[in-house]
């Protein structure tokens, strides 16, 4: 069997395009810094007001946490669901059926390629920012786990968004509802608030959902918690999500071929 080359090529092409348009990258980074500075200030003030510890996070830990969660979200294209849904709804995706590669696969790898340069840039800038404002990470060794976890988080998110967007094969104009999906990550994914700081019932709910794999997992690691099981959970969720998105796209494509765009 020959090795398939399209995933790598697709991702690299998309990545090169993002790197080439430096203006867009600049805006992303400035926005990232802005959000991180604000949210980290809020949490550090809160930690200070609570005797240096909120839900087990100290000032340095919470800063590394925020820097990481924001990177997982801001590195993504925030119009991904809407754009994918529009391409499906308008029938533009039909053209992609003509390619000798999976529609979902090409889209996911191209999106991964688009977001990896941004993810790396945000992570580096965020790391420096955390070092300067809050000091060294509580346990530097965990950063080695946080790095692959960041990539897994973004991959989970992109695949899940495609699974959501696939509803456009059946529903016309559900565009604005998808917008809400991203907001689930704010709370249930631990982006704005560590899951440990949630009330018990909500924390238990969040632990059953995939959103924690998309933001919380790398942040938990980066904030000094040596919990390799998080990586295993992320891989597990990724497999489940790929299965879901794949099934949705296969069914959708069949429908497209039967009913037409």
């Amino acid at each position: 069997m020959t090795r398939r080359r399209w995933p790598g090529v697709t991702a690299r092409t998309a990545a090169l395009r993002v790197v080439a348009e430096r203006g867009g990258m600049g805006v992303t980074l400035v926005f990232y810094v802005l959000v991180v500075v604000v949210l980290a200030s809020l949490w550090r003030v809160a930690v200070g007001a609570n005797g240096g510890n909120v839900a087990g996070y100290g000032a340095a830990a919470i800063t590394w946490y925020v820097v990481t969660t924001e990177a997982t979200v801001i590195a993504l294209n925030n119009r991904l669901i809407a754009d994918t849904g529009r391409d499906i709804g308008s029938g533009a995706v039909a053209v992609e059926l003509l390619r000798p590669a999976s529609v979902l696969g090409v889209r996911v790898f191209s999106e991964l390629g688009r977001c990896l340069p941004r993810l790396v840039a945000c992570a580096v800038v965020g790391g420096v920012l955390a070092l300067v404002t809050a000091g060294a990470p509580p346990r530097p060794a965990t950063l080695a786990l946080a790095a692959p976890s960041l990539v897994l988080a973004v991959a989970c998110n992109i695949v899940a968004q495609h699974a959501f967007a696939a509803t456009a094969f059946w529903l016309r104009d559900a565009g604005s509802a998808w917008f809400l999906y991203q907001k689930l990550i704010f709370i249930l994914g631990g982006m704005l608030i560590p899951l440990e700081a949630l009330p018990g019932w909500l924390e238990r709910t969040a632990s059953l959902l995939p959103f924690r794999a998309m933001s919380y997992a790398p942040a938990r690691l980066a904030s000094g918690h040596l919990e390799p099981v998080l990586l295993v959970q992320q891989v597990g969720w990724l497999v489940v999500l790929v299965g879901l998105a794949g099934a949705a796209f296969r069914a959708g494509e069949r429908r497209l071929q039967v009913v037409g765009g």
Binding site: L42, V45, N50, V54, F179, L180, K183, F186, L192, I193
Partner: peptide, 21 residues
């Protein structure tokens, strides 16, 4: 609905940390 997420966040946040400045 989107804005309600923010209300939710602030409620959870201040429940946990009391008041801040």
């Amino acid at each position: 609905l989107n804005d309600i997420v923010w209300v939710f966040f602030w409620v959870l946040f201040f429940r946990r940390v009391g008041s801040v400045r």
